[in-house]
Simulated assay, not measured.
Amino acid sequence: MQMNNALATLGTPVLLHAAPEPDREAAALAFLRGIPGTRIRHTDTTLLAHLQGVYAKLKAWGCRDDLCFAGLFHSVYGTEHFRRQTIPIAARPRVTKVIGSDAEALAFQFCTLDTRAFLADVEAFLGARIADAPIDPEKSDLLHLFVANWLEQFPRMRASQRSSHIGFLRHARPLLLPAAAEEVEATFGFNLPLTPRDSERELEALDRGTGTLRILDDFVPLHLRHQLSALMGRNIWRYGWKAADTQTSHFFWHSHFAGDSDDHGNTDCEHELHNRPLVSPVLELWHLIRDQLAPGHVPVRVYANGQTYGGDGHIHSDADQPGHFTSLYYAHPEWDPNWGGETLFYNAGKSDVVAAAYPRPGRLVHFSGNIFHAARSPSRDCPALRSVIVIKTYCPAA
């Protein structure tokens, strides 16, 4: 069926109810497949595949049929973000004939939705909600459409997009069907119990004694990982940073968050993080480290480094005084073993590598500031920015 055939009978009287099941699904899919516009690209797939994916999610969640079919057509008239009209408004009667008046009306309403205003309206309802009072059925339908649309695209989103609605989705879970709420939880891990895997060892650190190196996986919650990766994708970077005074070329990217440039200082800079809403995920990361890994510590310097091919850091230590520690968090959203970028740790004479930390996304490395180390740049094959958040701390009791 070509588009001319699918939309040709606009002047013909149409049925205002849906075709019987299972003919309704077959008719709806045949209708969409006959429209060339559904084959355009949409978030690294086709529009048709996206529409079918949203439909499948709603169906798997146990949503009523009209809501599922609204999901199958949820953006065919264009939306505020997807501004391509695959089916003209004049063809609404034809769409109604295929999926029914209730499903078509809901799809059209979603296409014309002011998302920001809608989300604010739902947040306001949640704020004033008494006990488990149900949300308006129409808003519930739109909410499930919004969540299904978002989650279907989520695996193909850039890291900077994935954190856009984390706060809203966390709050809105009680309004969702159980299966939908479970998928939100599985995607962001709000309540997922973490069982960190911790590797710890002592390393020689010249005449300054030994130092402790800990490598922790599954330490940072999934939703916070998304937020930190998104921050690394923002326009926060300045070029020209170096790891040591010996480095006179091949610099890398840097973003300062709090504290000063003196690694030997002991002044608490947490108030600076509180005053910068943009880096609130970094403040949450620091609180996680403080509460579970470094009680009694205060942050003295907080920043991020970004490296591309050729931007190696020279061997250095972060402090030669007792009580200073460094936490490295690998904030890039993905990494391939062939991309390199390891953090290397050296013996006291800097003559041999005695430990290495692979830059696995979401990994945290915590070590004494007196240990010599260096960040290796990504390989030539790497298309990504090696993004590391650095939190340097001081503990008077150490």
Rank of each mutant, 00 (worst) to 15 (best):
L293S: 12
P337E: 11
A304N: 01
G189V: 04
E21I: 04
H50M: 07
H223R: 06
S164V: 07
S261I: 11
H81G: 15
R129V: 00
I389G: 01
Y358H: 12
Y346H: 08
D114I: 06
R41E: 14
F372D: 02
T212L: 12
I215D: 09
H297A: 14
R64F: 03
Q52N: 13
V279H: 11
M157R: 11
A374R: 01
A357F: 01
L222E: 11
R290Q: 15
E183G: 03
H366E: 09
E342K: 07
H165Q: 13
E183I: 05
W339P: 00
A90I: 05
W61H: 04
L10D: 14
L151G: 08
V14D: 01
V282L: 14
L224M: 08
A179Q: 04
L143M: 12
G349P: 00
E334G: 07
L194F: 03
T393A: 10
D312S: 12
K350Y: 04
G100A: 06
D352G: 13
G37I: 00
R162L: 02
A107C: 10
E270Q: 14
G323T: 10
H223I: 01
I87P: 00
R173C: 09
R360M: 08
Q161K: 14
I87M: 00
F168S: 05
N191V: 08
H324T: 09
A294Y: 02
E342D: 13
Q161Y: 10
V184P: 02
R170T: 05
D44A: 13
R41L: 11
